[in-house]
Design a protein around this nucleic acid. Structure first.
Lengths: 247, 247
DNA sequence: TCAGGCCGCTAATCTGCGTTAGAGCGCCGC
DNA sequence: GCGGCGCTCTAACGCAGATTAGCGGCCTGA
């Protein structure tokens, strides 16, 4: 088993992310550390974290690695409907809904906390305005889903992929995981194809086109954006749906 | 101007819908009538109710007619990302997010209430568990979006359209707007095409195929499901994502 | 009464993208 | 040291679905 480098990030990515929504103070960071109470869970790449139909009673907070929400059809077709990056919650909604309507899978080796309802209560009681930040986060997730619908329904494969890369760039930057215009893209082309509703072959073709056009470089799981402005133009990218109100 | 028949539905569709999520009593219905306090708003078909970028400070509760959430690209391409049926809220999230990341348009002539934050507060204070029902509704909307992503990304046009019709059937049935296996489908083929990421021509072809297959009849804006079981099979329909826990 | 807009429907053409097949490479376990 | 697997990449082929164009019916307003 290959061990990925696991930085001891804890709630830091989450704190940075929520800080994009509203001004936070050290007291907020301290309150959020209550979420680190439980043990850290691990999961290997390509394994499920939760399956459709289950009824988990915990919320997961991703600490390192990438995971995804996906849905599949009886005949095996599969659609990734969202990526989870460090600092993201997998399904705040389990406190309301009784049954998962989708699955959650680890795309790389991941680490996460399992958070009990009562831990959230502790946080909210200490810093009530964090509830607003958490709901905000949930609604941004919903907004990202809408943008993906627009992408898959209307954008061409090139536009679609360009849009995804810009989105990932901004999200990773928000949690401190981008250096300059580069970031780690630890998932396979198959995952990208499943997220974009494309065949693997055509995804690869599209990737080659982006390289030829001088939009990106991608090698060794490192994505480098060569021309952010042109990439955004191609993607018709409007960052409003991420609702990063600050910075 | 042609006047559509406007039944005096008030909060009845909403009450029925929430009743699918949890057991409600007359006291809940009474509390919900606080939402009818404001004047009824009207909007003609093909007009916008709200535009992307705006910051409405009210939530709309649709009373009659159909509306949609949509997003558009600078070059005019347009994707419908959700339908609003009577009893649906257009954007509970305006209490959290500062700016709309999508537009809302009337597909037919519609009537709706504009609800002030304080009206919600009244309702919640009187019947606290209704907050849970409202959040539930919001999360079901999010689940529907995920299912649409699966549809557009993986289902064939025939499967996709079949799935949409089954979904609409269940949703309309929940608010009392289906009679037997028939319901009013007051939108154009163009709207169906925009919701399914298909061209108008191909949507029409697909519709013909469904008729030939004996799955549906559609004429005069009335959709009749001829064989629900086969339609669900074609669509690979699993109703879990609607989270109707009761009945 | 006529013109124009909206809507449903169909035919012909072309191409973007899926499918199938297969090569090369690096990693891992045996 | 070898076999197998996961991943990237390419070529050839064929079809599903976009595009363009156009007809006819209905409704509405001038």
């Amino acid at each position: 088993m290959r061990m990925t480098t696991l930085t001891a990030a804890g709630i830091e990515p989450l704190f940075r992310l929520l800080g994009r929504y509203m001004q936070l103070e050290d007291a907020d960071r301290n309150a959020l550390t209550a979420l680190e109470a439980g043990p850290v869970c691990y999961r290997e790449a390509r394994h499920d974290i939760a399956r459709e139909g289950e009824n988990p009673k915990v919320v997961r907070l991703l600490v390192s690695g990438w995971a995804c929400r996906y849905k599949d059809l009886p005949d095996g077709r599969r659609q990734i409907v969202g990526f989870f990056l460090p600092g993201d919650f997998c399904d705040l909604n389990v406190y309301i809904l009784s049954e998962l309507d989708h699955s959650i899978g680890a795309l790389t080796a991941v680490r996460y906390y399992e958070i009990q309802p009562q831990q959230f209560q502790t946080v909210i009681e200490e810093r009530p305005h964090l509830l607003r930040a958490l709901l905000w986060h949930e609604m941004v997730s919903s907004g990202i889903q809408r943008e993906w619908l627009l992408s898959i329904g209307q954008r061409s494969p090139l536009e679609r992929l360009a849009h995804l890369f810009v989105e990932l760039y901004y999200r990773l930057q928000a949690v401190g995981l981008a250096t300059g215009l580069s970031f780690d893209l630890p998932i396979t082309q198959n995952h990208l194809a499943e997220a974009n509703g494309l065949s693997l072959v055509h995804l690869n073709r599209t990737l080659q086109e982006m390289r030829r056009e001088g939009l990106i470089e991608l090698a060794d799981r490192q994505l480098k954006i060569m021309d952010l402005d042109r990439l955004k133009e191609v993607a018709m990218f409007n960052r409003n749906y991420l609702h990063f109100n600050r910075q």
